[in-house]
Nucleic acid binder design. Structure first.
Lengths: 154, 154
DNA sequence: TTCAATTAGTGGCATATACCACTATTCCGG
DNA sequence: CCGGAATAGTGGTATATGCCACTAATTGAA
């Protein structure tokens, strides 16, 4: 009897997702490694690039990432001179982020490498299936998992 | 004009996958938090449980995880007394892993919490779509990304 | 049998990512 | 205008994960 035949049982969606993420990340990381960036860093530079000097909170939302995690991830990029932060003029709580010239050059350099990985992946799974996969993943990302509390307090 | 309308361009599959993984992991993590375990730790205990005192390398392969990463991840579980390692009788290089009684109890306790998360997720996206998603993710995991070297040296 | 090559893990280091506690600002009701 | 509530980030701590260098053990070929 197959394990998956047990009624009501399904393999952990979370574990399956993380496993795939590990594997795919390693592939993208390997391909863009000559740039010295990791996949996450590249994605972050790209987000900053397409945003209009976005606030940290804005980036965190777009990347569905914890704000403090973003802060930590940003540090090596600041240290290496790819991005810089500055206070918002109207709200001094807000820190905005922009690419430096060096960062922009690095982004362009890395994009060339990235497109190898992207094309290779889509050649393997097919463009349509890749698009389908992204659509499902975006759906997972946008889901509202909130379980309404049984007894709302107050 | 839409960004995605640019021919040949598609959003980064890797970034999309990681983003979804962050979100879903946070959900599973939140639900099983009362057990004191993280999703990865739970998955790891489960792998050890279903294996027959698996060697570390075997677990790493099954989880598609770097062997040293597995070693690091195992440490807090050993520290907390959930798992223990021992040398293989026939090959002293090999370290095998098993659950302790405490670890087994923790696994059972956490499985109850896990099934809430699993069921909630599948209620939201549908059992069939969840199965489809896992199938696609497994495919991504199993892909052979190797690009044949242009000029094989030697 | 003996030594080079391979295999299995470990430890160090770096990034990825989360939560919590804390600070600095801003906002808002009275 | 003032003080409490809300908002934006930072820093600390812990796990997650990978690569590299290194050790220990096994294997294999001369």
């Amino acid at each position: 009897m197959t394990k998956t035949a047990m009624p009501g049982f399904s393999p952990c969606n979370n574990a399956t997702l993380r496993r795939a993420a590990r594997k795919l990340s390693r592939f993208y990381d390997d391909v863009i490694a000559p740039s010295g960036l990791k996949g996450t860093q590249y994605g972050l530079l790209y987000q900053i690039y397409v945003g209009s000097e976005p606030a940290m909170g804005t980036i965190a939302e777009e990347m569905v990432m914890d704000l403090s995690a973003l802060g930590h991830t940003l540090k090596p990029l600041i240290r290496d001179g790819y991005v810089e932060t500055f206070a918002d003029k109207d709200d001094r709580r807000v820190r905005r982020v922009r690419l430096t010239l060096l960062g922009l050059a690095k982004l362009e350099e890395t994009t060339k490498l990235w497109s190898f990985a992207q094309q290779r992946f889509e050649a393997l799974v097919g463009q349509q299936r890749a698009a389908d996969l992204r659509a499902m993943l975006d759906e997972v990302t946008e889901l509202d998992y909130e379980v309404p509390p049984a007894a709302p307090s107050s």
